[in-house]
């Protein structure tokens, strides 16, 4: 089994459009949407949810005002500024439990918090494992780990070849959780100075966790000079740029129609994504 995770650093470079196209092109796979706080893959794959589970993670402190003597020790010690006027702000509380440990009159309890839902769904492309983090919740990394674990169980049970993962933007906790131990990271960038800056940082994260990378330049003809710079930078770093994808509104039109772009149009973009998938699958067979 091989696991491909699609990342970008910068958001909005086309990760989800590419993953949905791979869903249509690849045989024998499970799909995973690890962008748990702003998931969009389901909008193209139209899943039927088969299994839904609550995701309980982390704790939040509560102060019992009847018992509280307003001594102020918890407020003084909380490093997250989560206690004001002897009340806990659940959005600032990181669930460390320090206040609960030190309260001299046992007025503080911590409660488990329900931080989201995980789903296993069927789509016409195969299984999709996805999730929805509750609004303003923490522990997105743990929910990502759960989505990946669900995908691994299905791949093993059904004896499939690939997990194809739509990753979150950025380089922080959910990205690290999506990435660690994957077979390959496909980094989708765009020829803008921001895209290039963010690509360098996400390459750094992949290297830090020892995951091999391939790069794909989306909207390459928006600024060919920058595309050339990305290619020469990658060349000097020993990283393969596996595809250039044209700047074409068909990608957006396909999103509006709710289809993977390779099913929506026969444009150049479709051809470029098909070739990219061939390169990836050949690479993973080695």
């Amino acid at each position: 089994m091989k696991e491909i995770v699609v990342l970008s650093g910068k958001g909005g470079t086309g990760k989800t459009s590419i993953v949905a196209s791979f869903a249509s092109l690849a045989q024998s796979k499970v799909l995973a949407d690890c962008d748990v706080d702003a998931a969009d893959l389901h909008l193209l794959l139209k899943p039927k949810v088969k299994e839904e589970k609550e995701f309980w993670s982390g704790r939040v402190a509560f102060i019992d005002e009847e018992k509280c003597t307003e001594c102020g020790l918890c407020q003084e010690l909380c490093r997250f500024g989560a206690i004001k006027d002897f009340e806990v702000d659940p959005l600032s509380c990181e669930g460390c439990g320090f206040c609960y440990q030190v309260c001299p009159v046992d007025a503080i309890a911590t409660k488990d918090s329900m931080s989201g839902h995980s789903f296993i769904s069927e789509t016409k492309y195969g299984y999709l494992c996805h999730a929805r983090l509750g609004i303003a919740q923490e522990n997105s990394g743990k929910l990502v780990a759960l989505v990946r674990q669900n995908a691994k169980l299905i791949v093993e049970r059904e004896n499939l070849d690939y997990i194809i993962t739509d990753g979150p933007p950025g380089i922080g906790c959910p990205v690290i959780s999506s990435l660690s131990g994957a077979s390959l990271a496909l980094l989708v960038t765009e020829p803008t100075l921001s895209g290039m800056h963010d690509l360098e940082r996400v390459i750094g994260v992949c290297r830090h966790f020892g995951v091999p990378v391939l790069v794909c330049v989306n909207k390459y003809d928006l600024n060919e000079e920058n595309t050339y710079r990305i290619e020469s930078y990658c060349g000097s770093e020993g990283i393969e740029v596996a595809a250039r994808i044209s700047f074409d509104n068909v990608i957006t039109e396909a999103i509006v129609r709710g289809l993977p772009v390779v099913e929506y149009s026969n444009s150049k973009v479709t051809q470029q994504i098909k070739e990219l998938w061939q390169i990836i699958s050949a690479k993973l067979e080695k």
């Binding site: 706080d37 702003a38 909008l43 959005l91 923490e138 922080g172 709710g258």
Partner: peptide
């Protein structure tokens, strides 16, 4: 996103401008 880094950045604001695009 919508998780803890977003909350940390937005809280305390007088106004929040939400930038979006006209796609699903």
């Amino acid at each position: 996103g919508t998780s803890c880094p977003v909350i940390e950045a937005v809280k305390g604001s007088d106004f929040c401008l939400l930038v979006t695009e006209s796609t699903p």
